[in-house]
Design a protein around this nucleic acid. Structure first.
Lengths: 341, 341
DNA sequence: TTGTAAGCGTTATCAT
DNA sequence: ATGATAACGCTTACAA
């Protein structure tokens, strides 16, 4: 630990600690000359204020806690980075933790964050376990917000992408390309975000008067493994869809891998879209058509909400996603052929 | 901020704060009954000790700082997660920051971490800017370690994968498959890790008596973009190599994309290997042969080194990488076959 | 076994 | 414009 304290600086500058504190914080009036002396002492001593002591007194740690399912998840990384950037502009740091969607773990982490007295907590973890976490938070009074997880009756502000809309847009894109036989691959259905995505998918079909069959929806786990497995499953069918809406880029990549294995070429033989627009999406072969979440915008709102002086309004803010068209989508072959005739 | 303090607990339990502290920390002798009373009070009041105050007194924050180039980079994520896990087992949190390999930014971040009095700082950022960061650290006395970046004359322990060996292994794998015309794609050459990888590549060729030409080595930026560009560059050549050693999975993915575009099939027409074994490597089409870094093992050593009671030994520890053979490599004969039209 | 009280390094109030 | 000094919430000798 750094041994030099505000006392050392005060002594060296020949002033009181109060004065040093004032120049350091720019509070109160201090003579120009005094300021210079203090600053020189700080420099000479390589003094770094102890933020622990400062925080204890000021009740501000300049740190935000962030809960995500897994920092390794590309979308989580994207979110972490965006929040980190915005926080930095406020002179804040952010400590991100992986909950693994495990309730016990989440509770333990919330406990820690609470003890460390962070100035705000951002929950971007699954809504699955948030129930108890919410209770924990409410008993202490910390600012908190939920991100990208629609949670009903939340006592905290919620910021999320309009997944219904995103899903609608990307499905519509496929339909406009001529697809009529679509399937949707979802993350587990207990996630509200999955349901929203499903709703958007379904609404798009409805809007264009396309018949809907329940067997068009597939749902498994998370990640590429899930996509791979789901693809394997759908390949058993006699009548394959001409396009697949994967509601996660990771799932899409898994699908891509399976299709590649069995020699189905995307988008020639089948179209495929993802969701999230993680960096990987642009690097897939072929680059994935997907929907981008407004991560930066969302992060700005989130941090601002946490750090604002005013009382928090408990509202849900839905942000608009953006369709990103790349090369994994094309008109279905039959469609093209039909046009020619 | 939580209003309940140790005083409230003491009052409620009818004991002194000293006693409460003792039962909370398990230090000193306290009567069984008293313990029960205190614990009940803690529970009823939902008391969470203020770790700021505690840290101020004990000089331990139970938090580690971690500097990586970019949390979005998949390998960085892997490292962050591994360190997070190990730290958690010690009841520690880790705050990861992205330096963007920018010196100014790195210095600012180190400053912040220093002020927050973290118990240790892990530098996994580029050696490029570490010079000044090291100086900053040394003036304060914090524990620190370097990870995955070989830095000469480091005043701190360094833990890194033996990139020379990893590169050697994967190159040898290619040679044993029958490849004789190899190229290597590297990250910028001012990175010692790049040089080590190059050395391993070269040594393998040497060991097998394969002629080496300078134009076999290509070096550009980081990430898939770089790989894509490098691939584009090499495709201009008349005599293509039969295998490419990309010293990063991300670079390999970029290469894959370019090759895919021009219709070169991996590994039939050309073999390709990556490095790092990020999750993406296994999901590429085809899944990438690569070399895995012992991230978990490394993280264990790193955290242990930071948290150990004993004086730090300033040594460099090189950990062995592991060759992971998947489907992006094959004997070059097929390439010849493909040539005959 | 339990309590008193002096810090830990800041900031902020109130004098001067 | 500057300085004493009392907190902030906890830990830890040292007493009792």
């Amino acid at each position: 630990m750094s041994k030099v304290t505000i006392y050392d600086v005060a002594k060296r500058a020949g002033v009181s600690t109060a004065t040093v504190s004032k120049v350091l914080n720019g509070t109160g009036r201090v003579g120009k000359e005094t300021i210079a002396r203090v600053e020189r002492a700080v420099e000479e001593l390589q003094y770094r204020p102890n933020l622990l002591a400062s925080a204890l007194k000021k009740k501000r740690t300049f740190t935000l806690g962030l809960l995500v399912p897994d920092v390794v998840n590309p979308f989580a990384s994207l979110l972490i980075r965006a929040i980190e950037e915005v926080a930095l502009s406020y002179n804040y740091s952010v400590l991100a933790c992986s909950t693994d969607n495990k309730q016990e773990r989440e509770e333990k982490l919330v406990d820690t964050l609470l003890s460390k007295r962070f100035d705000g907590i951002i929950i971007a973890s699954s809504e699955f376990s948030s129930e108890s976490a919410i209770q924990q938070l409410q008993r202490q009074d910390v600012r908190a917000v939920f991100v990208d997880r629609v949670v009903t009756d939340s006592p905290y502000p919620v910021f999320a992408t309009d997944h219904y809309l995103g899903s609608y847009l990307v499905t519509e894109h496929l339909i406009q390309l001529g697809h009529r036989k679509l399937a949707v691959f979802l993350e587990p259905l207990y996630l509200r975000s999955s349901l929203e995505r499903l709703r958007g998918f379904s609404a798009a079909l409805e809007a264009y008067g396309i018949a809907q069959n329940s067997f068009q929806v597939y749902s498994g786990g998370f990640g590429a493994d899930a996509g791979y497995a789901l693809a394997q499953q759908i390949l058993q069918r006699e009548d394959l869809p001409t396009a697949i809406v994967a509601t996660t880029d990771l799932i899409a990549v898994g699908v891509l891998q399976k299709l590649h294995e069995v020699g189905i070429v995307v988008p020639r033989d089948m179209s495929l879209v993802g969701y999230d627009d993680i960096p990987l999406a642009g690097m897939a072969a072929p680059p994935l058509t997907t929907v981008a979440q407004p991560v930066i915008e969302m992060s700005k709102l989130v941090v601002a909400a946490l750090l604002s002086e005013e009382a928090q309004e408990i509202t849900t803010t839905l942000l608009p996603p953006k369709l990103v068209v790349r090369n994994s989508t094309a008109a279905p072959e039959s469609y093209v052929v039909a046009e020619r005739e």
